[in-house]
């Protein structure tokens, strides 16, 4: 896990940082948990904390993130797990990021 961040990972990080003026941002490449080649960038989890989520329902927050990453989702990013919180929610949370559920081998089939 100590390897340098991939190209897509960096793009996702930059886009979310700029697009949402994120106060906290985790971009986790979870591709290794899935049936894809080593070093693949297909499955991601993002934790975004932003003032822009204030007053938005969960689904609207997720749509905002999906929309910023539209290109990536179209071209290779296959799973995107999203935690979208306002700064107040983030402060009140335990700040622990749970990993996504285990793969069950459906990829590419």
């Amino acid at each position: 896990m100590a390897s340098a961040p991939g190209v897509i990972e960096s793009i996702i990080r930059n886009k979310l940082q700029t697009g949402l003026e994120a106060k906290h941002l985790d971009v986790i490449n979870e591709s290794y948990m899935h049936n894809v080649p080593k070093g693949a960038e297909t499955h991601f989890k993002v934790v975004v904390v932003s003032d822009k989520f204030d007053g938005l329902t969960l689904i609207k927050r997720h749509r905002l993130v999906n929309d910023i990453l539209k290109e990536e989702l179209k071209s290779g990013v296959h799973a995107l797990s999203i935690e979208a919180k306002t700064p107040a929610q983030w402060e009140a949370s335990d700040k622990v990021v749970e990993s996504s559920p285990n793969c069950r081998g459906g990829f590419g089939k």
Binding site: A79, P101, N102, R104, G106
Partner: peptide
């Protein structure tokens, strides 16, 4: 979903 309820083929679908 991916797969069927008795045999989901993706962790997210299973959840």
């Amino acid at each position: 979903m991916k797969g069927v309820p008795d045999a989901p083929r993706c962790g997210f679908s299973n959840a």
